[in-house]
Design a protein around this nucleic acid. Structure first.
Lengths: 89, 89
DNA sequence: AGAGGTGCTTCAATTTTTGTAGCAACATCA
DNA sequence: TGATGTTGCTACAAAAATTGAAGCACCTCT
């Protein structure tokens, strides 16, 4: 499961998530949104671009494949919120 | 998104995945299945148990919450396979 | 007693991540 | 023209995480 290896790296899922719904973010905006240091962000972006999940054309955005990933991520995010909510109780 | 932080650690998604469909694995079986060194596996298991995703009662298995996570993970796995398949072409 | 399985723990070496700083290129405004 | 802001990074040393191999203590079965 190579995709799990890619997405299981620190910040990878988070970066994809921050680019949901067609958002286009600059490197610095992603820096703030994903709460990562620049070195890590740059490493992740390189990996995600090599995997054809993220593209850079004047700001970072998801590729078509990345957009499919977001759809696949939706249930996970819903679980995350339920999980976080149950922790608060 | 705290769940992304938890699941974004090395091996976390993989461990959950290996325990899919009600599988009960011993520590050593998980070691081999998830391809992790024992120290890392132990750390992850502690985190996943603290998050009430994995339980240990004579072998490791998913909790009810972990089972819900697996359901939420299914689309992601389908995406992974499609992604891996397209890499092979 | 011996052989096998269990869940770990330990350790040093390597890899990864972090946080801060700063650079070079470009646009904007004066 | 120069000053200012923004861009995408890179550099560096320190801290944290991961690795891989070894081994320990405990249990069970023969």
């Amino acid at each position: 499961m190579a995709a799990l290896d890619l997405l299981g790296r620190r910040g990878a899922l988070r970066i994809v998530w921050e680019l949901r719904e067609g958002r286009v973010l600059t490197f610095r905006a992603l820096l703030a949104a994903a709460e990562l240091p620049p070195g890590t962000l740059n490493t992740r972006l390189a990996e995600l671009r090599a995997a054809d999940v993220v593209a850079a054309d004047g700001g970072y955005r998801l590729t078509a494949r990345g957009a499919e990933l977001i759809v696949a991520l939706w249930p996970l995010m819903a679980w995350s919120e339920a999980w976080a909510a149950s922790l608060r109780t």
